[in-house]
Amino acid sequence: MKKDWLSIRTVVAAGIGAAIFIILRYISIPVGFIPNTTVQLSYIFLALIAVIYGPVAGGLIGLIGHSLGDALQYGSVWWSWVIVSAIVGIGFGLASRFLKISDGEFGWKSIAVFNVFQLVTQAIGWFLIAPALDIAIYGEPANKVFVQGFTAGILDIVTVGIFGTLLIWLYAQTRTKAGSLKKEA
């Protein structure tokens, strides 16, 4: 196929992925060690699906999931953060080139690669781009948006680092190696 960068699978992954991204915004799990804080499940899921389906799917899920999610939940869209979500999705997806998740490989090396990618893109996204866009679009005070971006970023990096890695590892476990299934008496 010519349009390989946007295959049917990518389109469907983006569409259904965004639907889950949106639903997960409504579900929260308490983090035991920090009171009154909940894990942002959406980005953990985004990490998994971007690592499986690549940067295009990841970027589209960030874009569609965040903008549509905002619109459906709040009736307005916070564009600066939508863009960051898209960038983060692309960043997660870029790691897929260096990983072989679909073959069930996710050892220490892969874990390191994934975490480097997620750390770098999320840092750029939340610490730099999000505040910059907030200032440019909404004219908000610089120190406020940097503090906001910083807290959101740190929290996301940590949760994706722990739970995202775990989820991808779980997924890799479910992949079966070629030619490995046989009936046992």
Partner: peptide, 8 residues
């Protein structure tokens, strides 16, 4: 034979 299967 499915990829993951040992036999057809």
């Amino acid at each position: 034979k499915y990829r993951s299967q040992e036999s057809p």
